[in-house]
Structures are given as structure tokens and as C-alpha cells.
């Protein structure tokens, strides 16, 4: 994905952005991720989100493809070999000690083993993975519908989002190690094609694609589908998570709604 340079962050004070400077492609206005102008423009994403939800609702299905369309291995992106001690130890024992915790605004917090997930009803779908960078890759994913897990945990009415916490460190900065995290709304969380995938192209999910478990959110872009997940928390707001935008990339300028 895109590299970010935090040092480039500039705070634009004052609202008097000369219109002429807007017309210079090389100008700094758009190089400042915190600029007020950028925030106004990012509001268009909220419009896109509302319109797509209004028109598409919760039920429209992402396109599904045939076996013949699977022509290559699923291209991994982001972290493809977590270097974390905890992850490596879990991997060395084939994830026997790994658990998926469901917590937050639920009546019955869960801690599921891989065997328990494998024993639940599964869904298999051949879908197209669209990366925010622009490329696409078709693969067959198998997993437990997230809705079944949420039903078992009994989500409280206050919950608005499902937040995924991952085992892979994506950034080592001055503030310490940052592990990947991301979130979706409950419309997508309960969508029939939103699955916690443990299988890829008929085999167990490989490490580079997110073993032991990753999310598939088929109506959004790849960065909305965290890999190496170990915890799902139901929340009513992102305020306490990261920088408050709802995900690792969202906190670095990407739109929270990744449906476009």
C-alpha cells in the first residue's frame, strides 16, 4: 500500500486558502493530510456511503464467479509474514492455542477455537478481491458467516460497528508497535457474504493471506478485510480506537467506507 510520511503533515491554519493556490497541481494544500479543505472533501465519502446504502441496502450481493475464473493464487498484500513473536508461536503449533474472542457490546462474550469455527455452518464463495491500488484477483473463500458468530454472542442494540483486531504488526514507530485493525458497520457485518474465512481456493488459508482467520467483506476494498484476526469487538464509536477513524488505514487518511 501507499507509504505515508508523517513528517509531511502540516497544519493549515486560517481558512483563507487562496483560490489560485488550488489550481497549482504542485501546491502543498493537498499534501497536508490534516487540512480543513481535505476534511471537507472527504465528506464526499460519507455521501457515497449513504447513497450506496440507500440504493443497495444490506442485501445486494457481490458478484460471484465460477471455478474457471480462478486463474492464479490470491495476491497477498500488506503484511504477508507477521514477524510477531506471539503470532510465530501460534503458527508453530498450527494455531492450536489461537482463539477468536468476541467482546464489547454483546450479551455473551465468546472465545472460539479453530475447531469450533470449523464445526459451524460454512459458506464458500468465488469473489473478486479489489485492492485500493486498483488491481483485482479472483479466488474462492470458505468460512463462517460472521452473522452466525454475532448471533451466538447476541449483539446488544447499542452496537453500531464491528472492530477487528489483528496479530500482525504493520508499523513500528516511535510510539511503539501498531497492529492492524479495522472496522465495518453492522449492515456489512450481518451481510450474507461477510465471512470469517479459514479456507482459500479449497485449502487452509495460507499465512500470506491471513492464517488462521481473515474477514471477507465482499462489497468493499481489500483494506477493509483484516487478516490474522484474533478479536472482534462490538462498539458504538471509534473514539477510543487508534486515532478515532475506525481503522489503521483510515487513521492514515483512507476513507472509512471502502465501497468505492
Amino acid at each position: 500500500m501507499t507509504r505515508f510520511s508523517i513528517g509531511r503533515r502540516k497544519f493549515l491554519t486560517g481558512s483563507g486558502l487562496a483560490a489560485s493556490s488550488l489550481l497549482l497541481p504542485g501546491c502543498d494544500v493537498f499534501d497536508a493530510p490534516d487540512s480543513r479543505l481535505r476534511e471537507v472533501m472527504a465528506g464526499a465519502n460519507a455521501l457515497t456511503y449513504r447513497v450506496q446504502r440507500l440504493l443497495g441496502g444490506g442485501r445486494t450481493l457481490a458478484q460471484e464467479f465460477s471455478e474457471a475464473d480462478i486463474r492464479q493464487p490470491q495476491k497477498p498484500n500488506g503484511v504477508s509474514a507477521p514477524d510477531d513473536a506471539v503470532y510465530k508461536e501460534l503458527l508453530s503449533r498450527d494455531f492450536a492455542d489461537w482463539r477468536l474472542d468476541i467482546a464489547g457490546a454483546v450479551e455473551k462474550p465468546l472465545s472460539l477455537t479453530r475447531e469450533q469455527l470449523l464445526a459451524m455452518p460454512s459458506r464458500t464463495q468465488i469473489t473478486r478481491h479489489d485492492c485500493v491500488e486498483g488491481w483485482s484477483c479472483i479466488a474462492k473463500w470458505t468460512g463462517v458467516p460472521l452473522s452466525l458468530v454475532l448471533d451466538e454472542a447476541r449483539v446488544r442494540p447499542t452496537a453500531r460497528f464491528a472492530v477487528f483486531y489483528c496479530l500482525d504488526t504493520i508499523e513500528r514507530g516511535l510510539s511503539g508497535e501498531i497492529r492492524y485493525y479495522g472496522s465495518i458497520d453492522l449492515v456489512d457485518a450481518y451481510h450474507p457474504q461477510t465471512i470469517l474465512a479459514y479456507g482459500l481456493n479449497g485449502r487452509p488459508l495460507p499465512v500470506e493471506n491471513g492464517a488462521p482467520l481473515r474477514v471477507r467483506v465482499e462489497r468493499q476494498l481489500g483494506y477493509k478485510m483484516p487478516k490474522y484476526i484474533h478479536r472482534i469487538e462490538l462498539v458504538d464509536s471509534f473514539a477510543a480506537i487508534g486515532f478515532g477513524k475506525g481503522g489503521y488505514w483510515e487513521d492514515r487518511g483512507y476513507d472509512w467506507f471502502g465501497g468505492i
Binding site: 499534501d31 465519502n45 488505514w249 487518511g253 468505492i260
Partner: peptide, 24 residues
Amino acid sequence: PAWATIPSGQDLATGRVVHFFFAW
């Protein structure tokens, strides 16, 4: 090249923000 893109540096996130705003 940098002179042909907004922002001038490599910044996909902001490019998308600008693109979708003006698309609307």
C-alpha cells in the same frame, strides 16, 4: 510525474478524496 498529480507526492488516500469529491 509529480507535476501531473494531486497531491504532487505519492499519496493515494488524498488522491482518492479529491477524486471522489469532484466526481460528485
